[in-house]
């Protein structure tokens, strides 16, 4: 009876444990930090600060679930913003209208991200180079490319209407937050309810078995990375709208934040295990901690230390869960 209770408790922890952690953390912050529970922070500050990460976490979930990961996302976010800004400005200079210029800029920005993702995918799936090396390389290439295109400086965007995307509100909540929520819903359905999602988990769980079961492993891997690149680019464009410029220096270390958030929420680093619930929990916990530190005016150097500790906690938790599962 007692044993039974314990295994039930473990299963429950597996499913919703991290959400409970978030709720406790949230309650603690609300009680202890003055401005935390105010409407401005809850409807704007906190969700806005995690919206970019939440978006990219959606696709990183697929990467991790397939047993890989992608370090190039931070660079892609920065680069797509820059590319978008530069292309838009060039179109405006060429005399095209604002709408057309923006459309061109956004399209080229998205395409650049998708291209990087596609390249990652092809190299990893077809040339069998491991994801660490491949995306470490593209991370640097893309970052360099962002600097080159931007000539090392932030590129302001000359199309006012674009900033609406970053600053307007729906039901008092900023549009980028709605976009992130939409992404979470869409990718949550994709991973749980489609062959794309389930095949991804099967590949991460046992690639060879997946191949022999008739799953087109290489094609799915390429797709996962392409979608990842596309999503990072999209997030980069939304971010550029918020910052009203494309900034080549932005989002350094972003890839690690994204991966830590996923793992913290319970996505397995070794593949095969992951739900959108994990992502939501991880993003919320990490965002809350960072938000609390900012409100408390914790100096940035200490924030680095805290972020590192969170990452460490996340992988230790992953390890612990695995050893528990093996023992069971």
């Amino acid at each position: 009876m007692k044993k039974n209770f314990r295994s039930h408790a473990l299963a429950l922890w597996d499913r919703g444990g991290m959400l409970v952690v978030f709720v406790l953390l949230f309650a603690g912050c609300a009680l202890l930090i003055d401005n935390f529970a105010g409407p401005i922070n809850l409807m704007e500050g906190l969700p806005l600060s995690i919206s970019t990460r939440a978006m990219v976490c959606c696709t990183m979930l697929f990467c991790l679930a397939s047993g890989a990961f992608d370090l190039s996302v931070g660079s892609v976010v920065a680069c797509s913003g820059v590319v978008m800004a530069v292309v838009t400005n060039a179109c405006l200079k060429g005399g095209s209208g604002q709408a057309l210029a923006l459309a061109c800029g956004i399209a080229v920005g998205l395409a650049s991200g998708a291209l990087v993702g596609f390249a990652n995918g092809v190299i990893i799936a077809k040339a069998k180079i491991n994801a660490l090396i491949t995306t470490l390389a593209t991370m640097q290439i893309v970052r360099g490319f962002a600097y080159i295109v931007a000539d090392g400086k932030a590129v302001g965007i000359g199309a006012e209407s674009f900033f609406q995307l970053g600053s307007s509100r729906l039901l008092r909540i900023p549009v980028p937050v709605w976009i992130a929520v939409a992404c979470l819903v869409v990718f949550g359905l994709l991973i749980a309810r489609t062959t794309y999602g389930r095949n991804t988990l099967a590949i991460g769980g046992n690639e060879e078995a997946a191949r022999l079961a008739g799953i087109p492993v290489d094609r799915i891997r390429i797709l996962i990375f392409t979608v990842q690149g596309l999503m990072a680019a999209f997030a980069g464009i939304v971010l550029a709208a918020r910052m009203s410029s494309g900034q080549p220096t932005s989002q350094q270390g972003f890839e690690l934040e994204v991966i830590s958030a996923c793992v913290l929420g319970g996505v397995s680093l070794s593949g095969g295990i992951g739900t959108i619930g994990n992502v939501v929990a991880g993003v919320l916990i990490m965002g809350t901690v960072q938000n609390a530190m900012q409100l408390k005016n914790v100096p940035p150097f200490y924030q680095y230390v805290a972020n590192g500790l969170i990452l460490l906690a996340a992988v230790l938790l992953d390890r612990f869960k695995q050893s528990q599962a093996e023992r069971r």
């Binding site: 046992n206 593949g271 095969g272």
Partner: peptide, 13 residues
Amino acid sequence: KDEGIVPVLSVQE
């Protein structure tokens, strides 16, 4: 173990 099952997925999956 290496080519047949996907160990971390359920029987149904």
